[in-house]
Each structure stands twice: as structure tokens, then as C-alpha cells.
Simulated scan of single mutants.
Amino acid sequence: WWTNQWRLLLSGFAYTLFERLRAHLKKTPFERMSASNLRLKLIKVGAVIIRNTRRIQVLMSDAYPYKDELSDLVRRLVPG
């Protein structure tokens, strides 16, 4: 019973995360995509992450077709 409850809780959090993410996707090509397509095109991205004491760099391939859109989305999500 507890494992099913935990999985249900995680699924609820994931759904809420994607619904909040959709608020930032207005007027982009991702506006009307389903949660599975968003996960495939935005979340499952191969990248190299370099962590420094002052900043975090994410290096994506130039062949990734949604590189600019993802960068714009991350800029909107970062506070400040």
C-alpha cells in the first residue's frame, strides 16, 4: 500500500510540475504539447554540466533542435 501511495504522490508532483511549466510556455512551439512530448523534447536532453564555485554551465549539442527555446525557458524560470 505504501509503495502505491508513494508512486501516486510522485505522479501528482510531476503533473503539477508540468502544469506550472506550461504557464511559462506561452507563445512558444511547446504551448500545446502533451506532458510526454514535453518530457521527451525538453527534459530528456543529453548535455554536459560543468559546475564551478560561481555558476553552472550546461553545454548542449549544436545539433539539438530546441536549444534556443530551452535556453529562453530556463532564463524565464531562473529568479532575478
Score class of each variant (00 low, 15 high):
76 R>T: 03
68 D>M: 09
59 L>G: 03
35 A>P: 00
57 Q>W: 06
28 T>I: 02
31 E>A: 05
3 T>M: 07
69 E>I: 01
33 M>S: 08
12 G>A: 00
79 P>F: 01
10 L>E: 11
77 L>G: 14
14 A>P: 01
23 A>V: 03
56 I>F: 08
46 G>L: 02
50 I>P: 00
62 D>R: 02
51 R>L: 10
56 I>Y: 11
33 M>F: 02
22 R>N: 03
80 G>T: 14
24 H>A: 05
4 N>H: 12
1 W>G: 06
13 F>K: 08
28 T>K: 04
30 F>V: 03
56 I>Q: 10
15 Y>N: 09
68 D>V: 12
33 M>H: 07
69 E>F: 02
28 T>E: 04
62 D>C: 09
47 A>W: 05
48 V>E: 15
24 H>C: 06
4 N>I: 15
33 M>D: 07
39 R>S: 04
22 R>V: 08
47 A>R: 06
32 R>T: 13
30 F>E: 12
29 P>H: 08
46 G>K: 07
16 T>L: 14
35 A>F: 02
14 A>Y: 00
69 E>C: 05
55 R>A: 12
59 L>Y: 14
7 R>I: 11
13 F>Q: 00
21 L>I: 11
58 V>H: 01
65 P>Q: 00
25 L>V: 01
80 G>H: 14
35 A>I: 02
21 L>E: 06
15 Y>V: 12
1 W>A: 09
64 Y>G: 07
58 V>F: 07
40 L>N: 09
79 P>W: 07
28 T>Q: 04
31 E>W: 05
27 K>Q: 15
67 K>V: 15
11 S>I: 01
11 S>E: 15
73 L>K: 12
5 Q>R: 01
32 R>I: 04
17 L>P: 01
74 V>N: 00
30 F>W: 13
21 L>H: 03
29 P>E: 01
62 D>Y: 06
28 T>C: 04
56 I>V: 14
71 S>C: 05
36 S>R: 04
51 R>P: 07
68 D>N: 08
68 D>S: 07
55 R>I: 05
45 V>M: 11
21 L>K: 10
7 R>L: 04
56 I>R: 14
48 V>W: 14
9 L>D: 08
39 R>F: 12
53 T>D: 13
52 N>H: 13
14 A>R: 04
61 S>A: 13
40 L>V: 11
74 V>R: 09
24 H>G: 05
76 R>I: 00
47 A>M: 04
70 L>P: 00
44 K>L: 15
26 K>D: 06
70 L>Q: 09
67 K>E: 14
25 L>A: 09
63 A>R: 14
53 T>P: 09
5 Q>C: 02
65 P>E: 12
65 P>M: 02
21 L>A: 13
21 L>F: 02
71 S>H: 02
38 L>V: 15
2 W>F: 14
62 D>W: 03
58 V>N: 03
64 Y>N: 07
26 K>C: 00
1 W>Q: 05
